[in-house]
Amino acid sequence: MTQLMTERQDITERYLSDGVILIPQLLSPAEIAEIRTVFTEQVEADRSLGFDDHVPSEDILARFPRFVHPHRHPEVEAGRLARRLMTDRRIFGVVTELIGPAYGAQSMFYFKPPTARGQALHQDNLFLQAHPETCLAAWIAIDDCDAENGGLMVIPGSHQIQILCPEDADPDESFSRATIPVPESAPRVQTEMKAGDVLFFHGSLVHGSRSNTSADRFRRSLIFHYIPQTSVEVAQFYIPLLHPDGHEVTIAESAEGGPCGEGWVNTGP
């Protein structure tokens, strides 16, 4: 994992080379504790912010569904917190260093309790369809995470390949239904992150995670996606975008079908 860490002065060079960088302890322990408490209390009280991933009722993820676009729900504390952090100057500052002036496109929160399945290998811009640029993810560890509790796996350098078309994923290993074909020889890196670390990665970087096999460790994460202000279109699901000053922005909607052929349907974020 150490090869993903970088000094601030060379983050752009490393990002261009690997498509992924780790900034340790970008958020403080107190901030992480607040995020953990607010989102956990929210899901325990009300799952209405949860995204419907069509998991069976007995699946642990039915009890702890991922939140998608919580920043669009200012009526609850989790929504207000997500919206504030989405434009936080520390996070947005790194985003700007990497891709220039940007808009916020999506917020997500994953709970991933013990026994929860992972998410098959994928590329984010398959879903956002930002054009002519691509998206950038800021993946914030809310718990310490590693292989045991389903930390992210990344393939450095894979952002330099084209967007790959999806195939069916193994439902025993992944709650998401699609994966992408990656040669077994591709160098997979299992991340190990401390709560407060932030992983920034390119929209074409291949990444995913395995099941949480720990006995009692959650793997909570808060994730933001951004697109350059030079992008002229994005999938309708992500409109309106969020300007760094907090106002909403609308750009053109990308055509259906994306890079995987006419008739392909975007079924989720």
Rank of each mutant, 00 (worst) to 15 (best):
Gln3His: 06
Met5Asp: 09
Met5Ala: 00
Thr6Val: 09
Gln9Val: 05
Asp10His: 00
Glu13Ile: 09
Arg14Ser: 12
Tyr15Arg: 04
Leu16Tyr: 00
Ile21Glu: 01
Leu27Asp: 12
Ser28Ile: 00
Pro29Glu: 04
Ala30Cys: 11
Ala30Lys: 10
Thr40His: 03
Gln42Leu: 13
Ala45Asn: 11
Leu49Thr: 07
Gly50Thr: 06
Phe51Glu: 10
Ser57Asn: 10
Glu58Lys: 11
Glu58Asn: 10
Glu58Ser: 13
Ala62Trp: 13
Val68Gln: 07
Val68Tyr: 04
Val68Gly: 01
His71Tyr: 12
Arg72Pro: 01
Pro74Tyr: 12
Glu75Gly: 12
Glu75Pro: 12
Ala78Gly: 14
Leu81Met: 04
Arg83Asp: 10
Arg84Lys: 04
Met86Gly: 00
Met86Glu: 08
Arg90Gly: 03
Gly93Gln: 13
Val94Gln: 14
Ile99Ala: 13
Gly100Asn: 00
Pro101Ala: 15
Ala102Gln: 06
Ala102Thr: 02
Tyr103His: 13
Gly104Asp: 01
Ala105Cys: 13
Pro113His: 10
Thr115Gln: 15
Ala120His: 06
His122Ser: 11
Asp124Tyr: 05
Asp124Ser: 06
Phe127Gln: 04
Leu128Gln: 12
His131Val: 12
His131Leu: 13
His131Trp: 14
His131Ile: 09
Thr134Glu: 13
Ala138Trp: 15
Trp139Gln: 00
Asp143Met: 08
Asp144Asn: 15
Ala147His: 12
Met153Thr: 15
Pro156Val: 00
His159Thr: 05
Gln160Ser: 00
Ala169Glu: 05
Asp170Val: 10
Asp170His: 07
Asp172Lys: 03
Thr179Asn: 08
Pro187Gly: 10
Gln190Cys: 08
Gln190Ile: 07
Met193Thr: 06
Ala195His: 13
Gly196Pro: 02
Val198Cys: 14
Leu199Ala: 03
Phe201Glu: 11
Val206Gln: 00
Arg210Phe: 14
Asn212Pro: 07
Ser214Cys: 04
Ala215Leu: 14
Arg219Lys: 06
Ile227Pro: 04
Pro228Tyr: 07
Val232Leu: 15
Val232Gly: 12
Val234Thr: 08
Ile239Trp: 11
Ile239Leu: 15
Pro240Cys: 08
Leu241Lys: 09
Pro244Met: 09
Thr250Asp: 07
Ala255Asn: 03
Gly258Phe: 11
Cys260Met: 05
Asn266Glu: 00
Pro269Asn: 05
